[in-house]
């Protein structure tokens, strides 16, 4: 059988919110390592990849590797039934037709049990090679969310330019141009609230704001976001989640014809 109990159940609610608008259905792959998911959006422009390590659960039991084929909208609806301070347990048999979500209140006075039918999903797994990125930008996740929101008022795309001066996000539309420049903070240690840039080569790439905005739904999961940018390659946007794992998004760039 498979059983994973997450004491901080609100994390599962947040992971759900971070993927449900991008992906309609996906396999949650459960192994001894933990729970992972990789799925593209329906237009094959972006990809989400997440890992919830087994040691982030208490307890975690996985007798046999299984894939839980899940409709995200249905699971998101069920997750909304959990309170923020509930403990969430995910449970299924070795050859599952359905999955059970159990929500326990902290004082154990209320226990909710939701059973959901599984789907047979023939998913395509993409191999993402290790890449040497031209620039790796770390910044407060809330700052990145704000930039995406503000520039969405100006245009459909954002041009991310990174050089020795810092990083610039710019958008252009019918009404004009918007530019937001961030300088690297002078700090020795990388801390929350800081902008840090690891620059190998100056780089400039354009991305659809619509998708970056979907990615920022992960903001409640982490204080910092990392953007890994490389010439003419997809950008990797990563939110590391304390004590359990990460959610990463990849987005193909827009390229001049």
């Amino acid at each position: 059988m498979f059983e994973a109990r997450l004491v901080q159940g609100s994390l599962m609610k947040k992971f759900m919110e971070a993927i449900k608008d991008l992906v309609k259905e996906a396999n949650w792959d459960c192994t001894g390592t933990g729970i992972s998911l990789q799925a593209m959006d329906t237009s094959h422009v972006s990809l989400v990849s997440l890992l919830l390590r087994s040691d982030g659960f208490d307890p975690y039991r996985c007798d046999r590797n299984i894939s839980l084929g899940i409709n995200m909208e249905s699971m998101a609806k069920i997750m909304k039934c959990a309170s923020n301070d509930d403990v969430i347990t995910i449970r299924s048999e070795d050859h599952p037709d359905n999955v059970t979500f159990v929500f326990e209140s902290p004082n154990q006075e209320k226990v909710c049990d939701y059973e959901m039918k599984l789907m047979d999903i023939d998913s395509e797994h993409l191999g993402i090679p290790d890449t040497e990125y031209d620039a790796i930008i770390s910044m407060p996740a809330s700052e990145f969310q704000r930039i995406c929101r503000d520039l969405s008022n100006i245009g459909d795309s954002v041009k991310i330019t990174c050089n020795k001066d810092g990083v610039q996000f710019s958008a252009q539309g019918d009404t004009g141009i918007g530019k937001i420049a961030l300088k690297q903070n002078a700090v020795i240690d990388k801390e929350d609230g800081q902008v840090s840039i690891e620059l190998n080569d100056p780089v400039s790439l354009t991305f659809a704001l619509r998708y970056l905005t979907f990615f920022t739904k992960a903001t409640p999961l982490a204080s910092t976001v990392t953007l890994s940018v490389s010439a003419k390659n997809p950008v990797a946007v990563e939110y590391r989640v304390d004590d359990i794992g990460y959610i990463r998004y990849y987005l193909a760039p827009k390229i001049e014809e």
Binding site: M40, L126, P129, S157, A208, Y250, A252
Partner: peptide, 14 residues
């Protein structure tokens, strides 16, 4: 205007 690439232009299905 720049055109949007497909992710599968970059990553192969494994």
């Amino acid at each position: 205007t720049p055109i949007q690439n497909d992710l599968q232009e970059f990553y192969a299905i494994v």
